[in-house]
Write a protein that binds this DNA or RNA. Structure first.
Length: 539
RNA sequence: GCCCGCGUAGCUCAGUUGGAUAGAGUGUCUGCCUCCGGAGCAGAAGGUCGCGCGUUCGAAUCGCGCCGCGGGUACCA
């Protein structure tokens, strides 16, 4: 239901009960048959304030109210005092036209207009290929970006590359050790990927000229970034910017951040170390420069987030792994100290467990199981990279971000009705099949007044919700909401399909149904697109 | 100990921000192919929403207290 339409209804009710604003009037979709198309509880809320009976007040409202135009067919009081209204089929038929004329734009809105948002996700260390946790974060982050775009936010996707610090030096040391056939340091990096990088660097001559672990580490990191970028690209994920931590250091970012923290009295010296006084801002005190004079990771990270704010973003959304959830508190405290309260939103992307044959699969390198994003795509798509991407992304999007996810590898690989990805894609394919038929009339010639069967109207009702679902997904930062919506829409279409033939029935009916099918195709395709999943015309 | 997240059908999970008789998928039964691709549709069965108080017209949803599971708790990143 469009916000505009609801507002008109709300105004009508306000007018009837002498309310000066319509904010209190909320409309919901009733769950059950026989409860109309829209429902409001305003009578129950007002009855409380006005010390009267809800049902009586609801009756009064219905007596006085003047509904806009003639889109309302019927209204009645139900249950404890709900006002349920039935909307005319004419209203719904217009939706089909709206969809077809808006095309891919259908469902777009401008609720985010004027907001500049940066979404940072994955941000894996450049010490190896991307793992499975990154794969989930990438799917969610990228969809979130698409959804925010669709709702009018000015959004940027960013990957923060930790290309400086301890782990880079360690990476360099590992590469050097491997090239000399020495033992890799205790907490260093080993594995096929490091070995091949060592080979590349030595054949490029880098290893012979350069022996400083830091510089070797940087060179290796650069190669890893390329590997990560490639994997993400075949996953359909693109970033507007790969922000290098080293850039931050070159600009003296951490030093500036420290000065700014000092300026607001958020820094103290104790036990020979320098601390951020987080306890003043709702967190705990944290060391930012060790007693040995080395900055901890916190300082560059504060500097990085400050940098985001200085680039003009009003909101920063970070997707982090479950091992980082108290990072959120300290970073928010730091931003608060620097005058950017409520700037940072943190989404914790929970753990992924793989299941096969009813048992948990350990994701260990040693066991030779799937560890990287690339391996997952290949495994699940059985060599077909597009299919692998579709399945992986859809599966990762099936659960709320904050819920641990069980990934059933057997189900994912199964090409059957049990696989939810195919169920949704199949609805799209089916429509394409219908519209491809020789006897299928041109949907553009349709007279929509021929749509009046229950299954037809019901399908339109689902299509109409698309925009609202996207808005809720954007506002709650939960692009997953689209998944259940699309599954639902596919179900509604399949029901329509079994109840209503499109091709081979009376000409006018046929054209109207073709138009409805076409509208459904558009919404399915765009919905899948927001998930980063393809909408195939044939399967 | 403290911080964060999670407990909903046998299993995996939704739940429109506090609404009406609790929703899917999957698994188990039962039906439907002369038919736009059956990768589909219809039906049955399956619930003390972890437990207990509280808030109110109304709670799976909000508050408090327990119980259970997971993660975090560095002068590591």
């Amino acid at each position: 239901m469009s916000a505009d339409f609801k507002n008109r209804l709300s105004e009508a009710i306000c007018h009837a009960v002498d309310l000066d604003n319509d904010l209190q009037v909320k409309w919901t979709l009733p769950k059950r048959e026989g409860q109309g198309d829209l429902s409001t509880n305003i009578a129950m809320i007002l009855a409380n304030q006005r010390k009267t009976q809800p049902r009586q007040l609801a009756d009064e409202i219905l007596k006085k109210v003047v509904w806009p135009q003639n889109e309302i067919e019927h209204a009645e009081v139900a249950g404890p005092g709900f006002i349920n209204i039935w909307i005319s089929n004419d209203h719904y038929r217009k939706i089909v036209n709206d969809i077809i004329t808006s095309g891919r734009n259908y469902g777009a809105s401008d609720i985010g207009a004027g907001h500049k948002v940066i979404v940072e996700f994955v941000s894996a260390n450049p010490t190896g290929p991307l793992n499975i946790v990154s794969a989930r974060a990438a799917a969610i982050g990228d969809s979130l970006v698409r959804v925010l775009n669709k709702t009018g936010f000015d959004v940027s996707a960013e990957f923060y590359v930790n290309d400086s610090g301890k782990q880079i030096r360690k990476l360099g040391e590992s590469v050097i050790a491997i090239s000399r056939n020495d033992a890799v340091p205790e907490d260093g990096y080993h594995g096929d990927d490091i070995i091949s990088i060592a080979k590349e660097l030595s054949s490029e001559g880098v290893l012979s000229i350069e022996s400083d672990p830091e510089n070797i580490g940087k060179a290796a990191a650069k190669k890893n970034v390329v590997v990560q970028k490639d994997a993400l690209e075949s996953y359909g994920v693109n970033f507007d910017r790969w922000f290098l931590e080293s850039e931050l250091h070159q600009q003296g970012g951490p030093e500036t951040a420290l000065e700014k923290l000092k300026a607001v009295g958020a820094v103290k010296e104790e036990d020979g170390a320098t601390w951020f006084s987080g306890s003043k801002f709702g967190d705990e005190d944290r060391v930012i420069i060790t007693s040995e004079g080395r900055p901890t990771y916190l300082l560059p990270d504060i500097s990085y987030h400050l940098n985001k704010a200085e680039r003009g973003f009003d909101t920063a959304i970070d997707l982090l792994g479950p091992d980082h959830h108290d990072y959120a508190g300290r970073m928010r405290a730091a931003m608060k100290a620097l005058g950017h309260d409520s700037f940072l939103e943190v989404l914790i992307v929970q753990q992924v467990h793989f299941v096969s044959g009813g048992e948990k699969v350990k994701m260990s390198k040693r066991a030779g199981k799937i560890v990287t994003l690339q391996q997952l795509i290949e495994e699940v798509g059985e060599g077909d990279l597009v299919r692998g991407r579709d399945i992986a992304r859809y599966f990762f999007m099936q659960r709320r971000t904050s819920t641990p996810l069980e990934f059933d590898l057997d189900l994912a690989k199964e090409q059957s009705e049990r696989n939810p990805v195919f169920y949704v894609q199949y609805a799209h394919t089916r429509i394409c099949g219908i519209l491809r038929q020789d006897g299928c009339p041109d949907p553009l010639d349709a007279d929509l007044s021929y749509l009046d069967k229950g299954e037809e109207i019901n399908l339109i009702k689902h299509l109409e919700q698309f925009g609202e679902i996207i808005q809720r997904a954007a506002e709650s930062r939960e692009p997953q909401k689209l998944v259940s919506y699309l599954h639902d829409l596919a179900t509604t279409f399949h029901k329509f399909y079994t109840a209503c033939r499109v091709v081979g029935v009376e000409k006018n009916i046929s054209a109207a149904r073709a138009a409805l099918s076409n509208a459904t195709r558009i919404v399915l395709a765009e919905g899948l697109n927001l998930l980063g999943v393809s909408a195939p015309e044939r399967m």
